[in-house]
Simulated assay, not measured.
Amino acid sequence: MRRPRWWVELILIAAVYAAYSGGRLLARGDASTAVAHGLSLLRVEDTFGLALERPLNRLFTATPALGVPADFVYASLHYLVTPAVLVWLFRRRPARYRAARAWLMTSTLLGLVGFVLMPTCPPRLLDAAHGFTDTMAQFSAYGWWGGEASAPRGLGGLTNQYAAMPSLHVGWALWCGVMLWRYGRTPLLRTLGVAYPLLTTVVVMGTANHYLLDAVAGAAAMGAGLLLTPYVLRFLDRLPGRAGAGSGVPVAAGAAAVAGGRGDGVIGGDSPRNSPVVSGGWETSAGERIPGQRSAPAAADDTPASAR
Rank of each mutant, 00 (worst) to 15 (best):
A163G: 12
H169D: 10
L188R: 15
R190G: 02
V232E: 01
L180M: 02
Y162F: 13
A208P: 04
P197Y: 11
W175Y: 07
T229S: 14
V178R: 05
T207I: 09
L188E: 10
T159S: 03
A220L: 15
A173V: 04
R190Y: 01
L158Y: 11
V216G: 04
G223Y: 04
V202P: 02
V170G: 09
N209F: 11
G206H: 06
V170A: 14
Y183V: 09
R234V: 04
L227Q: 03
V203C: 07
H169A: 10
L155S: 00
G193T: 06
V178T: 04
W181N: 09
A163T: 04
L188V: 13
N209M: 13
V232K: 15
A195H: 01
M205H: 06
A215H: 02
T191I: 14
L213S: 07
L189M: 15
N209R: 13
L174N: 00
A195D: 07
R182N: 14
G193A: 11
R182M: 12
A221Q: 04
P187Y: 15
T186K: 01
L188A: 15
A173W: 03
L236W: 10
A173C: 07
P197K: 01
T191M: 15
P166V: 11
L212D: 02
T186E: 00
G156C: 00
V178Q: 05
Y196R: 13
Q161P: 04
L189I: 10
R182L: 14
L226M: 15
R234L: 14
Y183L: 14
V204M: 06
L233N: 03
F235I: 13
G206D: 04
R185G: 15
G184C: 00
R185V: 04
M222N: 01
T191V: 03
G225A: 11
L228T: 04
G154E: 09
A173H: 07
F235N: 12
P166L: 13
A163P: 03
N209H: 12
A221P: 01
G184N: 00
